[in-house]
Lab assay of single mutants.
Amino acid sequence: MATGGRRGAAAAPLLVAVAALLLGAAGHLYPGEVCPGMDIRNNLTRLHELENCSVIEGHLQILLMFKTRPEDFRDLSFPKLIMITDYLLLFRVYGLESLKDLFPNLTVIRGSRLFFNYALVIFEMVHLKELGLYNLMNITRGSVRIEKNNELCYLATIDWSRILDSVEDNYIVLNKDDNEECGDICPGTAKGKTNCPATVINGQFVERCWTHSHCQKVCPTICKSHGCTAEGLCCHSECLGNCSQPDDPTKCVACRNFYLDGRCVETCPPPYYHFQDWRCVNFSFCQDLHHKCKNSRRQGCHQYVIHNNKCIPECPSGYTMNSSNLLCTPCLGPCPKVCHLLEGEKTIDSVTSAQELRGCTVINGSLIINIRGGNNLAAELEANLGLIEEISGYLKIRRSYALVSLSFFRKLRLIRGETLEIGNYSFYALDNQNLRQLWDWSKHNLTITQGKLFFHYNPKLCLSEIHKMEEVSGTKGRQERNDIALKTNGDQASCENELLKFSYIRTSFDKI
């Protein structure tokens, strides 16, 4: 039985969820670079991206490699990797027998973001014989899940209580170790020597080791999670996991709180800001991140802002960003909400898709409305799209047979046209069989910064309504002859009103 693990408890099935942008060198404390989270699957090609990484700022997932063999891993080693800020997950990587050479110096898994409450997941690794993470000293947050690894031993010899604050939620089941077939031998045991430290858990006094050649490092209890030197002297209180010299914040392997210019500090002093819960960055760093993602459509890219001495992905609820200094300031009234469309555009074809934009005031991208039916549609669209004030790209209304009016965009005031449909149009209306009105132009103002209007096959939309939009939106004169079809717009509506004058002759039985 794995020490510190839980057996036999019912657990939810383990679901495996399925960018080499360097964020800056980590400095003297770390020998390499800070790398983003990685999802490495199918083959070993991307694994080489770990070569210079000291910190993975995010998670590391290595999974679904069915053609790899043990010899493929023999020359692979990433000794610079010290810390993973989120979680480490391995799933069905064939041929991998140990992690001792792959990650010989991995010391800390912070667990800032977890995989279903777990910071370390080893699942269905069919050839893994031992973990071998002999320098792993601290899992700051989260638990361990090690399950269905039929060859995995050296679990009962690990004292997880020396690595985690609590072992109650560890789930370590259905491994070879369960069948008591392992016969784990710690260093020196074969020669009758006791080389590794022994600890007591559940009444068992057991030597602690990761492999037959690597003991588990056990520091004096007084050192807590700070770690200790090879001689057993406690590291500085700002260290986490390990250090090369005692009581020196510049000799830590990793930091308990924050890293700044080669030393570990309790908090980031001005003019620095907390970033990702582990390091200090200056304003320029946060500003660069903001600008890199301002026009990016890459998933996970955030326009970072500053709030409460932190550089964070977005302002919290009730705050909006001051564009001059990136500071989050309290909103006066309802907060603006910028919604970034991942692929640059979004099609609204149902109430469900409209709900995804609920509360958005600025759309960074283009909207395509293609709704053919739905219950209580006008009210639903207004509830979900009615706060949109600005669209950076274009607005396209296409084959939306259920629409009679666009009044559900009740606050839309600006279409920038930074991206144009077919390279020309910022407003595009095609084949809307029941569209009769755009907006009530006596109450609604709309500016279209650039781009043209396109109207074709809107049989109940009168040309007068379209011409009014040209005047109000500032697009009059931009359109070419064929942009607004004269014969297919309003051709099934009563669009022309003329005053009919009647004269009559009164007659009676005795007068003409």
Rank of each mutant, 00 (worst) to 15 (best):
H28S: 12
L29C: 00
L29Q: 11
L29R: 15
P31R: 12
G32E: 06
E33A: 12
V34F: 08
I40P: 00
N42P: 00
N42T: 01
N43K: 15
T45L: 12
R46C: 11
R46T: 07
H48P: 05
L50D: 00
V55R: 01
G58R: 02
G58S: 00
G58T: 01
H59R: 14
I62M: 04
I62K: 00
I62S: 00
I62L: 06
L63C: 01
L64Y: 00
M65R: 00
F66R: 04
F66V: 01
F66P: 01
K67M: 05
T68A: 15
E71F: 13
R74G: 02
R74T: 15
D75C: 12
D75R: 04
D75K: 12
L76M: 10
P79I: 02
I82G: 03
I82L: 10
M83V: 08
M83S: 09
M83Y: 06
I84Q: 01
T85Y: 04
T85D: 00
D86R: 06
D86T: 00
D86H: 15
Y87A: 01
Y87V: 00
L89N: 00
F91Y: 00
Y94Q: 07
E97G: 10
E97I: 11
E97A: 12
S98L: 00
L99G: 01
L99N: 00
L99Q: 00
K100T: 09
K100N: 14
F103W: 06
N105I: 01
L106W: 01
R110H: 06
G111Q: 01
L114M: 15
L114G: 00
F116I: 00
N117P: 01
Y118L: 00
Y118A: 03
L120C: 05
L120N: 02
I122S: 09
E124I: 04
M125S: 06
L128C: 03
L128G: 01
K129N: 06
E130P: 00
L133Y: 01
N135K: 09
L136P: 00
L136K: 00
L136Y: 00
N138M: 06
N138A: 10
I139L: 07
T140I: 08
T140A: 06
T140R: 05
T140F: 04
S143W: 14
R145I: 04
I146K: 00
I146S: 01
E147G: 00
E147V: 02
E147H: 00
E147L: 01
K148S: 02
N150P: 10
N150D: 01
N150G: 13
E151A: 13
L152K: 00
L152V: 01
Y154P: 02
Y154H: 15
I158M: 03
I158L: 11
D159C: 05
D159G: 06
W160C: 02
S161P: 06
S161C: 06
R162D: 05
R162Y: 14
R162H: 08
I163H: 04
L164M: 14
D165T: 12
D169M: 13
N170F: 05
V173H: 15
L174R: 15
N175D: 08
K176W: 08
D177C: 09
D178A: 14
N179Q: 09
G183K: 04
G188F: 12
T189V: 10
A190F: 11
G192C: 07
T194A: 13
T194W: 02
N195I: 14
P197C: 08
A198M: 07
T199W: 10
I201S: 06
I201C: 12
I201L: 10
N202M: 10
G203Y: 07
G203P: 07
E207W: 15
E207T: 07
W210C: 04
W210T: 03
W210S: 03
W210M: 06
W210P: 01
T211S: 08
H214A: 14
C215R: 09
C215G: 01
Q216T: 05
K217A: 12
V218F: 12
C219A: 02
P220H: 08
K224N: 07
C228M: 01
C228P: 02
C228T: 00
T229H: 05
A230I: 13
E231T: 10
C234W: 00
H236T: 02
S237T: 08
S237K: 07
G241Y: 01
C243A: 00
S244L: 10
P246T: 05
D247R: 11
D248I: 06
D248G: 02
D248F: 01
P249H: 11
A254V: 06
A254L: 09
R256V: 05
Y259L: 06
D261V: 11
D261C: 05
G262V: 03
G262M: 13
T267Y: 13
C268E: 02
P269M: 02
P270N: 14
P271D: 05
Y272V: 08
Y273D: 00
F275S: 03
F275K: 01
Q276L: 11
D277C: 03
D277G: 10
F285P: 01
F285C: 07
D288Y: 05
D288F: 05
L289M: 13
H290Q: 14
H290D: 03
H290F: 12
H290A: 04
C293G: 06
C293Q: 01
K294V: 03
N295I: 00
S296Y: 15
R297D: 09
R297H: 07
R298F: 06
R298T: 11
R298S: 07
R298G: 11
Q299K: 15
Q299M: 12
G300Q: 05
H302M: 15
Q303K: 10
Q303W: 04
Y304Q: 06
Y304E: 01
I306F: 14
H307R: 03
N308C: 02
C311E: 01
C311I: 12
I312Q: 03
P316M: 04
G318E: 06
T320Q: 13
S324T: 09
S324H: 11
C328R: 01
T329A: 10
P330D: 07
P330M: 04
G333I: 14
P334H: 06
P336Q: 08
P336F: 07
